[in-house]
Amino acid sequence: MEEQNLELKNIEQKEYDDLVNKVKPKPPVLKNCIWAFVVGGLICTLAQFIQNYFMGLGMSRQDAASYTSIIMIFLAALATGLGVYDELGKRAGAGSIVPITGFANAIVASAMEFKREGYIFGVGARIFSVAGPTLVFGFAVAFFIGLLKVFINS
């Protein structure tokens, strides 16, 4: 009896799901893709200009890339602080999340958000509340790749 009820409930929920999917408007995928492409592309183009400028000053490619990252992170942090980056992200989606600037935005936004709970239990404890998973799994993958490299080389 109980099993039967559960099955009925499942069917009911499945039917309801179908109704929701029928009524729900389709997301504007093309528009979102264009926004993401253009904004993501512009962020990368800006970074490329900065990198070329530093290389023009005689820096090595690697040094120039590091300085470029630092500048991009600064710009994203500034834009977050000024309340511009979230407006951009609303439209650009992945276009502004995937570049390094999105990572900076996630950290600065958390820091701003939790500042009111103080520097220790607010900013300190919560600053990586969004970016944390990226760091944890980034470290984990780096560790295993490193391990792999040691074995392959030996």
């Binding site: 729900k24 408007p25 389709k26 997301p27 504007p28 979102n32 977050t80 602080g81 309340g83 980056y85 979230d86 407006e87 951009l88 992200g89 609303k90 439209r91 650009a92 989606g93 992945a94 502004s96 999340i97 999105g102 935005n105 996630a106 600065v108 936004a109 958390s110 701003m112 958000e113 939790f114 509340s129 969004v130």
Partner: peptide, 17 residues
């Protein structure tokens, strides 16, 4: 927003729903 979703200054794209 901050309790149920994301920090408010984070650039998250809302869905149509």
């Amino acid at each position: 927003e901050r309790q149920f979703r994301f920090p408010t200054e984070q650039g998250v794209q809302p869905t149509v729903t």
